[in-house]
Write a protein that binds this DNA or RNA. Structure first.
Lengths: 365, 365
DNA sequence: ATGAAAGCGCTAACAC
DNA sequence: GTGTTAGCGCTTTCAT
């Protein structure tokens, strides 16, 4: 059986076997143009017989479309949010006939740059990016993307014409604070993971990625609405690394008037609170309360269950793909800014200090 | 500026601008063959000037190598093991100059089949597969892979000549049981997630994927070595779905002589135990002990920390890529069966019934 | 050291 | 309805 260089039968082999020309074979297999149903059947039989599989690379080259999406995600697709978004993207893409080329950047802008470049060289039809910083994004300009559409996920970028799919983290966090307030919490701490800070700091960094910014502002807004004085708030911005975040939690706790509740900006920070509290034999939901952003299986299964601001993960991924594919098919489509609702899921990690004021270590009767 | 159909400058544009032929331009850019360093510099400058980026698809077609690896993973790359393996694979591949096309199969053999086919059509240079069943694997034969190498991860497949990277789950589980025995546990339950079972069953299914089989056998071996009578063992094989696994846990607990410890075959099952125990106000590490396979951040951060059989996740992914790339470069390489050591990480989820025999609900003094 | 030309596998004008 | 041919962008003989 005649085979191509790569060892696989090509369309020429099919054509030969069916006794037709390449063009006819192609028409039969891709069902386009005019073709005799009889011939078509014949060709398909021949293809089947020799185990012909189209070379999608050749097809892509000819068509100028690779049916491939590039996904550039930050390191933490080990993270409870990004792993599920990734799965959602991969599945949704497949549903629409696209494959996904995946890269991760470890929150590093240089890596992101080169990843985008590589994917463009691989001729992806479009890009889904979780930008690692809000500061720089010339590599995402229409120019460097060569007109290929890009959809941003989880984080806004100012001054860029690109469809963006984010979540209502502001509202979610605001609500979380009000929830805690309604349960009697008055001294609140906020633990925020930021890539832009080395070590930890009580000062809010000048530059935050938009999702973290929204969470921070949401917490702030909630506290302000509830009349929580800045003095009764403690803030800690810290690097997303276990030792550091645990030290940050300790610092938050070791004050004259320790908070009755800690709000954390992501799961890693939540875990840090869990760990430090555990080491100190503090019971979550009693000695210390806790709310985090992003739901997870373990947050639900733990005792006590962790109260969370939940985001519509699957939908984020699906919409990102759908919007991207729509733009690939019609480049005149205007970019959209999509913000999906979050939901506060109350479990047992927030103590009710109204019913049980004695749980506050500063309680005096 | 003359541009190609796709809008990007091509090598012809570079050649024109540099006033040389395509061939020379190509030589300069890919640095092969004889070329005048002066000319080379000229060409590179021209390329830079017009923002030339090679079309890797065209290159791949010409070379018959796409510098792309296909990854076929089961659904659960949301799972604490596969998400990290995926990250490790993506990163390692990138380090060696390869990109990763990712697909998931939801543990479905039909999806796996078609995923493999699609990836082959996309001309990946090799495949990394987490096979969803040990029963069928003709789609992974040398034939259907068209001679492209494949590396199997996490699961063995009999009768297939392919490099396989798995972990010593047998030993890990055996050790886990002996650990529990040494702490005084005598009535043990085993909760095993299996895709081949609908609902739950106390009967061991005829067919298990190899990793689950190893774990099951490891538990069994450990119990037998410790002289735990089959009567003092309870087994439950169940579908990997929350409602079902939780029901399975309940069933395990609701017997005249309930186990003092439950061993779970994966994190989902572990979570099910956590949830049911929590609902019943049973404290892990006291009223009920627990050991699971696969470490995770939350298992470490929780109070009590969960004792786990830990697997070298990052290494699994890295080796899979390295071995695959080696085979892509030298197709005569013999397949290897690699089994990486596991480690028992003892935390506080296993009660010491020797020091505190009263923790056994059946304790009489 | 460089250029001309062939060709990877496919599809789409254009003929017939 | 089918065949002929050109060409996507690139690399690589083979000449010169």
């Amino acid at each position: 059986m005649p085979k191509s260089k790569t060892g696989r039968p090509t369309i020429v082999d099919v054509a030969d076997r069916a006794g037709v020309s390449r063009a006819t074979a192609s028409r039969a297999l891709s069902s386009y143009g005019r073709i005799n149903p009889e011939t078509a059947k014949l060709v398909r039989a021949a293809a089947e017989a020799i185990g012909y599989r189209p070379n999608e690379l050749a097809r892509a080259m000819r068509a100028g479309k690779s049916k491939t999406i590039g996904l550039v995600i930050i390191a933490d697709f080990t993270n409870a949010f990004f792993d599920r978004v990734t799965k959602s993207i991969v599945d949704s893409a497949r549903g629409l006939g696209y494959q996904v080329l995946i890269t991760n950047t470890d929150e590093d802008i240089a890596a992101e740059r080169s990843a985008v470049e590589t994917l463009i060289e691989k001729q992806v039809d479009g890009l889904i990016v979780v930008p690692s910083t809000s500061a720089v994004h010339d590599h995402l300009s229409n120019e460097s993307l060569n007109g290929k559409p890009v959809v941003l996920v989880d984080r806004r970028l100012n001054g860029i014409r690109a469809t963006t799919v984010i979540t209502e983290d502001f509202v979610g966090c605001e609500l979380a604070v009000r929830h805690a307030y309604s349960l009697g919490h008055r001294r609140m701490a906020f633990l925020v993971a930021t890539a832009s800070v080395k070590g930890m700091s009580t000062e809010r960094p000048a530059m935050l990625i938009s999702s973290v910014e929204d969470r921070t502002n949401g917490f702030l807004q909630g506290a302000s609405e509830c009349g929580i004085k800045p003095k009764a708030q403690s803030w800690m911005f810290c690097e997303d690394a276990p030792e550091i975040s645990e030290a940050a939690v300790a610092k938050l706790l070791d004050t004259a008037k320790p908070p009755t509740i800690i709000f954390t900006s992501n799961n890693d920070m939540c875990l840090a609170v869990l760990k430090v509290a555990g080491n100190r034999r503090m019971i979550i939901g009693q000695d210390l309360s806790l709310v985090t952003v992003d739901d997870s299986q373990w947050a639900a299964a733990m005792v006590p269950g962790i109260t969370v601001v939940s985001r519509p993960v699957e939908l984020v991924g699906r919409l990102a793909v759908e919007k991207l594919v729509a733009q690939m098919q019609d480049s005149t489509l205007a970019p959209e800014k999509i913000s999906l609702p979050t939901e506060l899921i109350a479990r047992q990690s927030v103590a009710n200090l109204i019913l049980r004021p004695e749980l506050d270590p500063l309680f005096k009767d």
